[in-house]
Computed example of a mutant assay.
Amino acid sequence: MYRVIGTVKSRAFRVLWMLEELGQPYELVEAFPRSDEATKFNPLGKIPALVDGDEVLTDSVAIMTYLADKHGGLTAPAGTPERARQDAVTLWLIDELDALLWTNSKHAFVLPENLRVPDISATLHKEFARNAETFAGMLDQSGAFIMGDQITLPDLLAVHCFGWAFGAGFPPLPDGVKAYSKRLRARPAFRAAADH
């Protein structure tokens, strides 16, 4: 059984959702960033961490990729052009959505007050809205999910980012992205992960 170190209201949620989609048993060990519990598994104090036997893995996307590859689900096979395209979308999401959300969080409450630049928020919101429109265009061309007719890792990542954006007061999503996000959030695996 896997152990996930983190909280539901963090990037650990992505890992929980992935495990639910893959039908893998796990235990959530609640730990907040920089807590003693988190630091036991990651010297940087960051969450999530995944414990798989004697192995401890960190970074939500690295963990998701590992789980998808290990269990052969929610991913194109490694070493294929489809996987390269999937990885390109995953990295785009990290650069163009996740990074903006994390920068906003840092300047809202993570950094010491003397290092925060609150005025950066307006720029981040505008950039996020532009990138959400780009995502909407990608979705229009792809099908039911961002990579086509099958749910994959980038879908979980995108929907988590959109939920984070909503909670952080970012601009409303384009209608198509809203409907996509709502549909994926209704999946039993999402609901099960959220119920922790």
Rank of each mutant, 00 (worst) to 15 (best):
K40T: 13
R14G: 01
L22Q: 04
W17P: 08
F13T: 02
D36C: 08
G23Y: 12
E20V: 09
G23K: 12
Q24Y: 08
K40R: 13
A31W: 04
D36I: 12
R11G: 03
F13N: 03
F32A: 13
F41G: 07
F41C: 10
V29N: 01
L16W: 10
L19A: 11
P33R: 10
V15C: 12
A31P: 10
M18C: 08
P25F: 02
R11N: 03
R14K: 00
F41E: 14
W17D: 02
E30F: 10
F32G: 12
E30C: 08
V8I: 00
F41S: 08
E20D: 12
V29K: 09
V29Y: 04
Y26R: 10
D36N: 06
L28Q: 03
E30W: 06
K40M: 12
S10V: 04
L22K: 05
V8M: 00
F32Y: 14
F32S: 13
K9A: 13
E27N: 02
A38L: 01
E37Q: 15
E27V: 01
A12P: 09
E21H: 11
N42W: 11
E21L: 06
F41W: 14
L19M: 09
E27C: 01
R34C: 05
Q24M: 14
Y26K: 14
K40E: 12
R14W: 00
F13H: 14
R11V: 02
P33Q: 06
F32H: 07
Y26V: 09
A31T: 09
V15Q: 12
Y26P: 10
S10C: 01
W17Q: 02
E27Y: 00
D36L: 15
V8R: 00
E21T: 14
K40G: 12
Y26M: 02
R11I: 01
S10E: 00
Q24D: 04
R11K: 02
E27T: 00
F32R: 15
G23P: 14
D36S: 05
F13I: 06
E37K: 05
F41I: 07
V15K: 09
L28C: 03
P33K: 10
E30N: 12
R34L: 14
D36T: 11
E21Q: 13
L22M: 03
V8W: 00
A12Q: 07
K9H: 07
W17K: 06
L28Y: 02
L28A: 00
K9P: 03
G23E: 11
E27F: 00
P33I: 13
L22V: 05
R14M: 02
A12T: 12
E30T: 10
D36M: 04
T39Y: 07
A38D: 01
E21M: 15
P25C: 03
P33C: 05
K9C: 08
S10M: 01
R34V: 04
